[in-house]
Amino acid sequence: MQDKDSKQLSGEMIQVVSFSLGNEEYGVDIAQVQEINRMVQITHVPRAPHFMEGVINLRGQLIPIIDLRARFDMPRVEHTKNTRIVVTEIGSKRVGMVVDAVSEVLRVPVEQVEEAPEMITGVETEYIRGVGKLGDRLIIMLDLQRVISASEKRELETLDAAAPEATAVS
């Protein structure tokens, strides 16, 4: 990775963990990634937003799992042996994300990261921090905070619609 252009190394670099969803390549800041796990049994949580896959037990801790495909309105696929759970930590929140496969850790020069052009991908631009160019590869850099917080917002809307005041019973 750090071979082709030595001038790039002198500039500021960011390290990203790259993974794939369909034909696209995504990246998240390595500082936000806690660990990468193989698929484990996920406990389904009923009445959660559709992209909440459920919760897993990670060494005694409950970690909520987001299905990124569902989050980005991509068609669901069967889990394969390459499917991974990327456990991220944003603030004090820990969230796992199901991705098709994890490829590698990349060093991307900061100046090669551009603002996301509108609708370059199927992913709504609100979740994207930018697009990193590495040779002819395009890495879509995710804004995890948005991926999570937007989920809270939507989830609340879902809740409001689905659950009228419990005390309205008589």
Partner: peptide, 18 residues
């Protein structure tokens, strides 16, 4: 154990246990 606040409050579920 409370469910993560990323999931939020879900009516009918008060938490989880391992």
């Amino acid at each position: 154990k409370p469910l993560s606040d990323v999931i939020g409050r879900i009516s009918g579920i008060s938490g989880a246990t391992i």
